[in-house]
């Protein structure tokens, strides 16, 4: 049967006047929504190119009317040590990724494909943590890091990255769908479990690892509050924390330069999103069912 060329409304409905009016209103509302999504993002971009007098004028205009000031970007680049903070963020991201794949990947593989005594209880031990709201233990979490002597080190981000039951669940679900005959064959050929994991399971898991990479990246790029507590040496702040402390909270600062810096921080995730749209939308569906 040919798929029906209709949604809730059929071609026939479109011939009736009340429906046409309703549909027209709906289109207008959607256009207004799209405009209100894009306008603030674009105004960040354009405010970064205005002269400071113009950003502060009232009422504000959307496009720069008194020349495009690209030299703002140069000033913005030199305002704080962006490359240093960027390096810190990438450092956190890469370490978190290594721990996620190393620790959680191994554990998920074990739960999915290997013999584990009392597997139900072991899974409960991991998954139970999903039901405890993180804010209730944010303070002891901080004190615990202090007791372990991890404050002000990057290990304070890397090691706890392995304590993520949600990622463990995603990895386990992925491994559950891999055929066990493949691993059986490798084992009969004399491969150790370590080899079956690194040489069979890991190469097959590139899709789920990329999805996790997007999650881990967006956390590392976004998180500003927790790093501001854990790191007290400002040379180790990740980008988001540095921007919050030195740009958002800055009392005396040219508004156009502020927006130029915000543009720098905003463009990489937007670019990544536009390029990897498909994977991100898929990750969203995985994320949508988290409990």
């Amino acid at each position: 049967m040919k798929p029906l060329d209709r949604g809730i409304m059929s071609p026939h409905d479109f011939k009736r006047r009340p429906n046409q009016i309703g549909y027209g209103i709906m289109i207008l509302v959607i256009i207004a929504m799209v405009a209100s999504m894009l306008y603030p993002i674009l105004s960040t971009l354009f405010n970064g190119m205005k002269a400071n007098v113009e950003v502060n004028s009232f009422p504000p205009h959307f496009l720069p009317q008194d020349g495009w000031h690209f030299e703002n970007y140069k000033k913005a680049w030199n305002f704080i040590e962006l490359p240093l903070f960027f390096r810190n963020t990438m450092f956190i991201f890469l370490g978190n990724m290594v721990v996620t794949i190393g620790v959680l990947g191994l554990a998920a593989f074990s739960l999915s494909k290997l013999n584990v005594p009392r597997k139900k209880m072991v899974q409960f031990f991991f998954m139970m943590t999903l039901f405890i709201p993180p804010t209730t233990y944010i303070i002891p979490n901080f004190l615990n890091l202090k007791d372990l002597g991890l404050l002000n080190t990057f290990a304070a981000f890397w090691l706890p990255a392995g304590a993520n039951a949600f990622f463990l669940l995603l990895l386990k679900n992925f491994f559950d769908d891999l055929h066990f005959e493949m691993f059986e064959a490798a084992r009969i050929d004399g491969a150790s479990e370590w080899r079956t994991y690194t040489q069979i399971a890991v190469p097959l898991s590139i899709p789920i690892f990329s999805t996790l990479a997007i999650f881990v990246f967006s956390t590392a790029w976004n998180d500003w509050f927790w790093p501001s507590l854990v790191m007290h040496n400002n040379q180790r702040y990740p980008l988001a924390t540095a921007i919050y402390k030195y740009v958002i909270e800055a009392q005396r600062m040219d508004v156009n330069i502020r927006f130029a810096i915000l543009t720098f921080v905003m463009l990489p995730p937007i670019a990544i999103f536009l390029v990897f749209q498909k994977y991100i939308m898929r990750g969203l569906h995985l994320g949508g069912v988290k409990g």
């Binding site: 620790v103 191994l106 739960l111 005594p117 031990f125 943590t129 002891p140 090691l159 994991y197």
Partner: peptide, 22 residues
């Protein structure tokens, strides 16, 4: 052996960074 070995790092980290703080 292998099942437990692969779980060990995750169990240690979950205890150290989630259950202990809780």
């Amino acid at each position: 052996f292998w099942g437990l070995l692969f779980l060990l790092p995750a169990i240690a980290i979950f205890i150290l960074f989630l259950w202990v703080p809780i």
